[in-house]
C-alpha cells in the first residue's frame, strides 16, 4: 500500500518568492551589485563599483581616530586661508575657557564694525602634532589634480575592474589613499617650511577668510605686543582677570600659514597691520594705477602739446611779421 500523502492544492501552484530582500540597516548594506548577465555586461562600459563613490577605500584604516583626525586636518588646511600656530604650555581648562570667551567677544565687536560674520567660525583647535604634520605633508606635496582618476573603461570582467577592489590601488586620489601616502613620503628633502614647528603641544587658530581686521583683534587678545597693545583695564576689565592673564602667559605665537605661505611672528603681525584689509589694499592699488594712468597720459600729451604750442607761437610770430609788411604794402600802394 503506498503511503498516504495528503494533497494540498496550495502546494501545487508555483509561488515565486520575492527575489530582492530589503536591507533594513544601512550598515549592513553592501555596495556590490549583482553581476549582470553576460550579454548585458558586454554593453556596460563602466566597471562594477565595489565601493560607493563617496567612500573610496582607504589606505590608512578608517576606523581609527587618527585616520579621521588626519582627514579633518587635511580638509582644515585646504579650506583655511589663514592659520596661526601657537604653542600652549599646560593651560588649564578654566584658562582656555576664559581666553575663548575674550576672543569671541573681541571678534564680535570687529564683526559689528566690519559688517562681516566671521566670529563664529574663527576657532581655536588643539591639535595632535604628529598627525597634523602628516596631514600637512599630504596637503603640500600631494596634488589630486596631478593624479587624475584613470579614464580607461575596462570590461567589467577584466583584471582592472577586479583591482578596483584593492584599497591600495593607486588610482584613488583622496587624502588617505596610498597615492597620497607615497607622495607625502617620497622625497625627504622636500620642505614645506613648518617642519621645525611640528613638535610640542600646538594649537591652531583658523580663520575662514583673509581678514586683517580680525587678525588684528586676535593678535591684541592672544599675543599682545607693542604693535598690538592689549585692551586697557578700563575698556575691557574681563581681559585682565587672572584666568585670562595666566593663560596668555603660557600661549606662544610661533608662526602663521597664510594662503600656503609661511610667516613667522613678525610676518603675522605685518598681515595684521595691513590697513583696511584686502579692500584697503585694492584701493591703494587702484589709486596707484590711476595715478600712473594720469601720469602716462600727461607724458604722452606733453610732446604733442609742446609741438602745438611751438607751432602756435610760430604762427603768431609769422602773422605778426606778415601784418606790418601788409601794412607797408598798403601804404606804398596808396601813396
Amino acid at each position: 500500500m503506498p503511503p498516504h500523502v495528503r494533497l494540498r492544492p496550495q502546494q501545487l501552484c508555483i509561488r515565486q518568492k520575492p527575489q530582492v530582500q530589503q536591507c533594513r540597516y544601512a550598515s549592513l548594506a553592501t555596495a556590490t551589485t549583482p553581476a549582470p548577465a553576460i550579454d548585458l555586461s558586454i554593453q556596460i562600459s563602466t566597471p562594477i563599483q565595489r565601493f560607493p563613490p563617496t567612500q573610496p577605500p582607504s589606505y590608512r584604516q578608517p576606523q581609527f581616530r587618527k585616520s579621521q583626525l588626519h582627514r579633518q586636518y587635511a580638509s582644515l588646511l585646504r579650506s583655511t586661508p589663514l592659520i596661526l600656530i601657537f604653542q600652549h604650555n599646560n593651560l588649564k581648562s578654566i584658562e582656555w575657557m576664559a581666553i575663548r570667551r575674550e576672543l569671541a567677544e573681541a571678534l564680535k565687536k570687529v564683526d559689528a564694525a566690519e559688517g562681516t560674520e566671521y566670529a563664529d567660525f574663527i576657532k581655536m583647535n588643539i591639535i595632535q602634532t604628529g598627525i597634523f604634520a602628516a596631514a600637512l605633508k599630504v596637503v603640500e606635496f600631494f596634488q589630486t589634480a596631478r593624479n587624475p582618476k584613470k579614464e580607461a573603461k575596462p570590461h567589467p570582467g577584466d583584471a582592472a575592474a577586479v583591482a578596483n577592489t584593492d584599497p591600495n590601488a593607486s588610482d584613488y586620489s583622496h587624502g588617505l589613499s596610498k597615492a597620497a601616502y607615497d607622495a607625502a613620503n617620497a622625497n625627504k628633502r622636500l620642505k614645506h617650511g613648518l617642519e621645525s614647528l611640528m613638535a610640542g603641544p600646538l594649537m591652531l587658530l583658523t580663520m575662514p577668510a583673509m581678514s586683517p581686521a580680525h587678525l588684528k583683534a586676535v593678535l591684541t587678545i592672544l599675543s599682545p605686543s607693542k604693535a598690538f597693545p592689549a585692551p586697557k583695564r578700563r575698556t575691557n576689565p574681563t581681559f585682565h582677570e587672572p584666568a585670562v592673564q595666566n593663560g596668555l602667559q603660557k600661549l606662544l605665537l610661533l608662526g602663521a600659514r597664510a594662503e600656503g605661505r609661511i610667516f613667522d611672528l613678525e610676518g603675522a603681525q605685518w598681515i595684521g597691520g595691513l590697513e583696511g584689509g584686502i579692500t584697503g589694499l585694492r584701493q591703494q592699488l587702484v589709486a596707484i594705477l590711476e595715478g600712473f594712468g594720469v601720469n602716462l597720459t600727461d607724458t604722452l600729451e606733453a610732446a604733442s602739446k609742446s609741438l602745438y604750442f611751438a607751432v602756435e607761437i610760430r604762427r603768431s610770430v609769422l602773422e605778426e611779421e606778415e601784418k606790418p609788411k601788409d601794412d607797408k604794402a598798403d601804404e606804398s600802394s596808396s601813396s
Binding site: Q87, H88, N89, N90, S196, G200, L252, G255, D264, L265
Partner: peptide, 16 residues
C-alpha cells in the same frame, strides 16, 4: 621657532 635646534628649548617650556 623656525630652527630645528629650538625643539629642546620649546619642549622644556611645555613640561613646566
Amino acid at each position: 621657532p623656525f630652527s630645528r635646534k629650538a625643539k629642546t628649548a620649546r619642549i622644556f617650556l611645555s613640561i613646566l
